Simulated scan of single mutants.
Amino acid sequence: MNNKDSLSTAAPLLSVVVPCYNEVENVEELTRHLSETLQGIPWEVIFVDDDSPDKTSQKIADMAFQNPRVRLIHRIGRRGLSSACVEGMLSTSAPYLAVMDADLQHDATLLPDMLTALRSQQLDIVVGSRYIDGGGIGSWDTKRAAYSRFATRISRYFTQTELTDPMSGFFMIQREALMQRVRRLSGVGFKILLDLFASSSTPLRFLELPYTFKERHAGESKLDNRALLEFGMLLLDKWIGHIIPVRFAAFVLVGGIGVLVHFLVLLLLFRITGAPFAYGQAAATLVAMTTNYLLNNLFTYNDVQLKGWKLLTGWFSFILVCGVGAAANVGIASLLFQRQTNWMLSALAGIGVSSVWNYAVTAVYTWQAPSIGTK
């Protein structure tokens, strides 16, 4: 057996974890870059694909059949960059774990230097930074550059370090350092590095190495409103996640909007049009429940968001599962109103009863959502 064969079959020293979604045009080129860059190093690449509709997982499976360095984790019913990174890192026994994007915007040639630094210095993690001397953001437009600077400033508050690029998605960590912190990770959003630093009870010993962010090789950027929402959810979890689950906090915020909708509809039907209170309360409950369902699907359960036909069936599930709560809502509110209780207080009592049902059962039966922020 020649040296090349022995390296390909040796237990990996380095695992490169690559979360991907609709990256079928990039995964083969990235693997080629890694092969050129990591010569002489026992390595593997673990692609974690969230059931991409462009059949990225099939492409990776074909590659893995030909190349023992390539591994695939095909996730179905789960979404999210951070959780994909965690799952990929936990799937290997390699002592050094790198995370990078599939789109070739991260400079793979920096990986050997990262590995050398981790092996030769007393470090937990080496971060590729765009914001130290020698690094850069490439050809970003003004809007994206401004967003990055703003997010970086906020993130540094949560990390409590001098890390210049806490929003970086390109780093290498010692497995031991990961395992000491993994149970405190939120797994929320798309910035696992921020999660790692913000979840650490003891400061991570880190080094930053400069790199310039490159143009995407192929496909479309994933930086959209969803990414901004996930970033906000992560910060919210780091702020109050040790007190209450972040999903519940988001659910309560959405519920506040539902209360306003409920009273507006009830005011319109009962006070303005003169409809009987029970009818007004029933209609207001249905409209508020529908509003809460749509907003929670968009925000609270964004990572398992229902679309297409599932959006409709999910609505039916939401209404049916919460039927007991809705019936109690109308019944209790009507009973209190008949006993001369103020109409607003009567409505609030009904809302309070149904709220517990809305959160507890819909998480299981409507969205079948994984638990996050429940440390």
Rank of each mutant, 00 (worst) to 15 (best):
S199T: 10
T202D: 11
K191W: 11
G135N: 05
D103E: 09
L193P: 09
G136I: 11
D103M: 05
P112Y: 03
I137C: 08
P210N: 13
D165M: 03
I125H: 00
D141T: 04
S120D: 07
G135W: 10
M167P: 06
Q160V: 08
A146R: 11
P210V: 11
W140R: 12
A102D: 12
Y157K: 04
D124L: 11
L196I: 14
Q160P: 00
E162Q: 15
G135D: 03
A177Y: 07
R130S: 01
A198D: 03
A151Y: 12
S155H: 09
L209Q: 12
R119I: 11
K214G: 14
L207D: 03
A151W: 06
D113C: 02
R183Y: 01
G189F: 05
K214E: 05
S199K: 08
P203T: 14
R205C: 06
E162G: 14
T212P: 04
T212R: 15
F206K: 04
S201P: 07
R184W: 02
F190P: 00
A198G: 02
D165S: 09
V127F: 02
R130H: 03
S148E: 15
V182N: 03
R130L: 03
L204S: 06
L194N: 05
I137H: 08
L110A: 13
Y211L: 06
V188D: 02
I125G: 00
S139A: 10
G138R: 12
S186F: 02
G169P: 07
G138P: 12
R205M: 09
Q121R: 15
A145N: 04
T212N: 12
